[in-house]
Design a binder for these strands. Structure first.
Lengths: 204, 204
DNA sequence: CGGAGCCTTGAGAGCTGTCAATCCGGGTGG
DNA sequence: CCACCCGGATTGACAGCTCTCAAGGCTCCG
């Protein structure tokens, strides 16, 4: 009998990276500032301490695509450890601060430190799991079902979900408009599949 | 001036894992066979050599969600290295064979081998990049635009994309029905944004 | 020649996104 | 103490889009 397992959509604090960030120097960015640009030599990896950065990749024809939005606690440009240059731009969406972890010393240290390298791998594998999960969530077309599955995964064993951020923030993470989310919540409530009270949701 | 960068949606052969798999023993699975179940003690990680495995997670209420479909060349259950038990079921969709890499010896080896640990991390960071990219691709609502962006990323510097699998296979990877893809291709062709010839697409 | 995949295109239904309007609770300045 | 403002929460209306179901056509291969 498989046991239910909790899977946070928002990646938890990256244990290893958080550690590395502690000894790193901070850099502050005003909204709109650019941390690095696509093609720059990769000189550091980062951890977002405050604020929000958007990673944007430029395509051959000049158009751009957002690759990711990194928030407080997220790692940033981990892949730059293994590449000679950045593959996208990083721009602060709001005033932010990041821990700057220089690439060369870090890489050198990791080369001689199996424990840290493994811890780093563990962080990444956790991210892979979360990302896979988010991707599959998007394969659920129906807003109602997608929301329901998301809630089930967030729920504690009693079927209770406590929200730590407003639906307007959660909706885009689910790939839905906030209106769609509210409508789905309304229908699920009407169908007696859940109960709502403020920022608590009880699954039935 | 940022240079265009190629980003395969299908993760390339995982260099490090491929290496590790070479010395591992193989296991054959008939369609429908189960490689491991959610809650089983994590005793090995795997690499799909042939066939296709589906990873399914069971939720608290008994429903199930597909987490991932692993194909030839893909790693399988890498996260199990860092967990004591599997977090999902793995079932062969068709006759398949996997390389079985025992967990304990591998972990022991990695603990003393910074190089391999780093190589493993590099594999994972590549996966993270690909997954992020796929996730953001899904944020593009319009089938036409999504397809176009995908093509741009797949294109070589000349704007040529050569397909190694039929559209019927690509379509679900893009989160679209194959009909939607064909229609998008037809419109893009009519708009002279691309030319098609067999399994080659030329962007304009 | 027949069949199996793949490719294409048509028609209709259902769903979500977008635009808009309203309500509500909390915080602020007068 | 009250008017005001702002962000979040809700709900309605509508257009546009993709999905699904269906029906061929095309190509390769036995």
């Amino acid at each position: 009998m498989p046991s239910p397992i909790r899977c946070p959509i928002r990646p938890e604090e990256s244990g290893w990276l958080a550690q590395a960030a502690r000894q790193a120097k901070q850099r502050r960015l005003a909204a709109g500032d650019c941390l690095f640009r696509q093609g720059d030599r990769a000189q550091a990896i980062f951890r977002v301490e405050q604020g929000r950065l958007r990673l944007v990749r430029h395509l051959a024809d000049g158009s751009a695509v957002t690759l990711h939005v990194a928030r407080a606690g997220d790692g940033l440009a981990e892949a730059a450890l293994f590449a000679s240059q950045y593959h996208c731009d990083a721009v602060a969406e709001i005033d932010s601060s990041v821990a700057v972890i220089a690439r060369a010393p870090l890489l050198a240290a990791l080369h001689g430190d199996a424990e840290s390298s493994l811890a780093f791998a563990a962080d990444l594998s956790r991210q892979v799991r979360n990302l896979r999960w988010q991707l599959e969530l998007r394969n659920i077309r129906s807003a109602r079902e997608r929301l329901l599955v998301w809630l089930r995964l967030q729920a504690n064993p009693d079927g209770v979900v406590t929200l730590d951020r407003p639906w307007t923030v959660i909706a885009p993470e689910l790939g839905l408009s906030h209106e769609a989310v509210y409508r789905a919540l309304a229908r699920l409530t009407a169908e007696r599949r859940l109960r709502r009270k403020k920022d608590r949701v009880q699954l039935i």
